[in-house]
């Protein structure tokens, strides 16, 4: 589009207009920059804090002694502690702690498990709603819509009791299966499926392709971008989930006295890291949060397009 050509009454009017435009630009950029700095500040604290050795960080915190932030006090020792099985406090007391590698493994298993189940159920259900005709379709769809209005807390209460009575506490079953279906993803996929022209379905029918064959060979390949978005958002959801794992997987240690394997996920692991021995472990906790956040950033850099598209439609987090 061509730029507007502006005509002014005289030079003075032009000068005033230019000054106003520049002033506006300055205000806009100043406002945006201040807020951008506010947005970035926690990340800056996180990156810098995670590299400063615990002793130096504690000295800095106690006295605001900036010399302790220098590069000579930087190192990877915080990260080493995060992934270690033991931790020695400043006063020389050594105690066992779970390694973050363990939380990572748990989270990967849960993320892959629940994402697989969610995607399979969503693809199949969305196919039925988008393409097939059956009695009760509208009723069922309205029911699904209605559940989105109900706060999740109501479901959590009974699901927690179900978990107790099935003796599923501290098992992967509780962490994976309870989130085996997502109404939102069914809606999202159904929308994409509905955009696929009818002619393809009829053509496939003429060729003798079954409904399932059509879903797998035509619809899924066409809807792959949406499915990718769902895969990524669901993985991120598992990575960030805190409430449910906190209720059903609450053992702290890798091997607790009763021999039960700890089922904590990364968020819960981070919360429980040094909960009781918190003094002097601040920089190690920062390293822990860095370890939890870094993979998310990596995913964001790689799949920015998919994430932003999915998010602008959903508004779900974690």
């Amino acid at each position: 589009m061509a730029e507007h050509v502006m005509y002014f009454a005289d030079e003075k009017a032009q000068r005033i207009f230019l000054a106003k435009t520049i002033a506006k630009k300055v205000v806009v950029y100043l406002f945006l920059t201040i807020f951008a700095l506010f947005m970035l500040a926690p990340f800056v604290i996180m990156v810098i804090g995670s590299f400063i050795e615990a002793d130096a960080f504690n000295t800095f915190e106690a006295n605001a002694d900036f010399s302790m932030l220098g590069f000579s006090h930087w190192g990877l020792s915080n990260y080493a502690v995060v992934f270690a099985e033991k931790y020695k406090t400043g006063t020389g007391i050594e105690f066992d702690k779970p390694s973050f590698a363990h939380f990572f493994l748990n989270t990967f298993i849960v993320a892959i498990g629940s994402t697989t189940v969610t995607v399979v159920t969503a693809v199949l259900a969305a196919f039925a709603f988008a393409r097939l005709q059956f009695k009760g379709k509208d009723l069922l769809f309205t029911l699904l819509l209605a559940t989105m209005m109900i706060p999740g807390e109501m479901m959590v209460i009974t699901n927690f009791m179900t978990t107790l009575s099935l003796k599923w506490t501290n098992t992967f079953a509780a962490l994976i299966l309870v989130h085996g279906v997502s109404v939102f993803y069914i809606f999202y996929l159904r929308q994409t499926f509905q955009q696929i022209p009818n002619e393809l379905y009829l053509a496939a029918k003429v060729d003798g392709v079954s409904d399932i064959g059509y879903l797998l060979k035509v619809m899924v390949p066409i809807a792959m971008p949406t499915i990718t978005t769902i895969l990524i958002l669901s993985m991120m959801g598992s990575w960030n989930s805190y409430v449910w794992p906190n209720l059903v997987a609450n053992e702290t240690w890798r091997y607790d006295p009763s021999g039960t394997y700890s089922m904590k996920l990364v968020s819960n692991g981070l919360m429980s890291l040094f909960a009781t021995q918190q003094d002097g472990a601040d920089s190690i906790k920062i390293a822990g949060s860095m370890v939890v956040t870094a993979p998310l950033f990596l995913v964001f850099i790689l799949f920015r397009k998919y994430i932003m598209r999915g998010v602008s439609r959903s508004g779900i987090k974690g």
């Binding site: 991120m236 960030n240 949060s289 950033f297 964001f300």
Partner: peptide, 19 residues
């Protein structure tokens, strides 16, 4: 930059605000 907080972990960044 303004989108970044969305792809972070609430617990991890809460810890940073706490600090």
């Amino acid at each position: 930059i303004f989108f970044l907080p969305y792809v972070t972990n609430t617990i991890a960044l809460g810890l940073i605000f706490n600090m």
